[in-house]
Nucleic acid binder design. Sequence first.
DNA 1: CGTTGCTAGTTGTAAGATACACCTAGATGT
DNA 2: ACATCTAGGTGTATCTTACAACTAGCAACG
Lengths: 131, 131
Amino acid sequence: MPKAACPRHGRQHPCTCAMGNIYRFIEPVLLMMLKERGHSYGYELSESLAEYSLTDARIERAALYRTLRALEQNGHVKSAWDTETHGPARRVYSLTDKGETHLLEWAEVMGRLGEAMRAFSKRASKSDGLS
Amino acid sequence: MPKAACPRHGRQHPCTCAMGNIYRFIEPVLLMMLKERGHSYGYELSESLAEYSLTDARIERAALYRTLRALEQNGHVKSAWDTETHGPARRVYSLTDKGETHLLEWAEVMGRLGEAMRAFSKRASKSDGLS
DNA sequence: CGTTGCTAGTTGTAAGATACACCTAGATGT
DNA sequence: ACATCTAGGTGTATCTTACAACTAGCAACG
């Protein structure tokens, strides 16, 4: 659910600001799951979300469903109702091309940010400052 | 500015949820800067923040000042007015013991999260899913 | 002496995000 | 009839963020 574009960096490269807030990383995790699984639906995604989650923070169903809707509005995923299967109807999602691209952007952002965080962690753990 | 304690993990270990939201990582960056510099004040911190920042997102003065206040309320930093130096008075901050500990907690969180993000990045960049 | 510009800290607030509770409904079991 | 599991969803108080605006000390310039 990033903002349309980053007001400072435009669309030059996927920057953290263009990604908007981090939303507990729900968005990238959902994109990844859909990429690897081909397709899935909210309830199923929420069941196995913990395996993919980047943090140990619980991701709520409400947030998950709303994120899926937002991803669809932005054209990153598409959905169709599955009324064949037993039980309540499922809204089945899959990635669009745009969504695949967006996942790659996330990968780039994550790579850089992850590196920065590891560096921070090492630096902060040093018993002496650099002063 | 984490919530008092994580409702799920209590205080067992520094978890992402106990850290609350990520606040553009202002909090850990400020703690780090104060650790390495010994002491500093808002305006000076904001000038060199970019060198320490984990993301390319601009950190606003307002957020910075408010974060410093919150850190003080939580006992992570302490402050004193410097009225000696020329110009407007400066509120000079330094880390408390609690703040040093908190920085180490951040380091642990960052280390784990950074690792998870790097792994995510590699996984997401693969052209084929694992399905 | 008044205006501009830099340093320094702070407040106000609209818009956006999160957490928690709650709701509808299909199907299955007892 | 009623509970339980699956499945999707809404309402909203509270928290966070982004942007703008403000006060005030001091110095230089004309």
